[in-house]
Design a binder for these strands. Sequence first.
DNA 1: TCAAAAGTGTTAGTGTTACACCCATGA
DNA 2: TCATGGGTGTAACACTAACACTTTTGA
Lengths: 228, 228
Amino acid sequence: MVKDYGNYPRHLVAVDCIIFGFDGENLKILLIKRDFEPEKGQWSLMGGFINSDETSDQAASRVLNTLTGIENIYLEQLKCYSGTEREPTARIISVSYYALINIEKDIQINERYSAQWFDVKDFPHLIFDHNEMVQDAVSRLRYRASTQPIGFELLPERFTMKDLQNLYEAISGEEYDKRNFISKINSLGILVRTDDKDMTSSKKGSFLYRFDEEKYHKRISKGFMFKM
Amino acid sequence: MVKDYGNYPRHLVAVDCIIFGFDGENLKILLIKRDFEPEKGQWSLMGGFINSDETSDQAASRVLNTLTGIENIYLEQLKCYSGTEREPTARIISVSYYALINIEKDIQINERYSAQWFDVKDFPHLIFDHNEMVQDAVSRLRYRASTQPIGFELLPERFTMKDLQNLYEAISGEEYDKRNFISKINSLGILVRTDDKDMTSSKKGSFLYRFDEEKYHKRISKGFMFKM
DNA sequence: TCAAAAGTGTTAGTGTTACACCCATGA
DNA sequence: TCATGGGTGTAACACTAACACTTTTGA
């Protein structure tokens, strides 16, 4: 006997994306203004339905590409939200993803969506359960950033120690001592200092660093564990 | 304009459950033997489809209750698996959950499913992507058990320090020093020693302990962080 | 009296936190 | 020359890891 799936209910399944960016000082999320009912004109996460021929990862990539034009965005699946009345007009199951993008990369934000960056500490009320999704995403980002070097996804290729510290402070919501932070980072042995300085922030200038992915993988393969 | 959802594809959405138990020595998972095609006769996780009027959490609870007769099982959602060809006969999206059950509670395992406990370190090949689900569940359990006192869900109400150590060793896959383990546990201040001893394991007998949930919550509210 | 598991402290080493001054530079 | 941010080291403390002997008791 082969099971007949014809009698089981079928569901609309969407993806919703929490898009994080970093402006050098604060952690940001990219929100869009909904241009259709229900909740037209309200702020919302960018989302879309999963097609028959794509995985949820692919749907999330596609949705992000539609909004930003970027390929190969860092993406992590978060959670499936399945409340039967989470949207008022239809039962929609949604899988959330968070994305990390480098705000300085010249992204072509599709104007169709009236997207805007907001501070994660101060953004408007969102439709449906999107506020909960953002909270969950921030929690996961905090955990992930403390166990894997994903913070660099949010920074330009070269950055100062101050940038990096600001980023980790923005993600964790805690403040660190400058000397302790730098020695912690240096002990990880995954950055290289370039010969150039960023002259915009001070008269003395501050050295620019790069994340050395090769070094990182070498250390990992030797049993090293990234921990911030 | 109200969005018309009629043109979007609808999907079969299932839940699959990784059911963990502990026999005092090893971490176990409960598997069932599939009694329908495809893959009839193969070992599999227990699963079921999400109905229109239930959330994925509710579906997972229902599925677990069908198999074990237990209500109020500890459940955590893991991940959505959405490969377009993860099942050969239909495109099915599946949300995985892991459950922790106390193996000693007299559970009435529904005979219809030919369920059997297997050691997590030695179990048969499973259908579809269920092996991957189990691996992901073990990783999550490891993380969760190191940050929240969920291990007690797997133990009877009263247990010895040796039981607890065996459990943490089975979950983490590492061995601990007895003295260090006990002093770590004691420093958490979340166990109480009862006046009774378990006499089955030795002539001297070993004291039975209980997890004191109230103490735990009191400590948490004072900023205490569980960490193993 | 012996075998088998329970119970118990100390020390060295490692990692974490707290803390303050000099340097280089452009204005 | 001064105001601004960059860069640097040390000491106390907390936590972790390593380690061995005595106790109890039924057989």
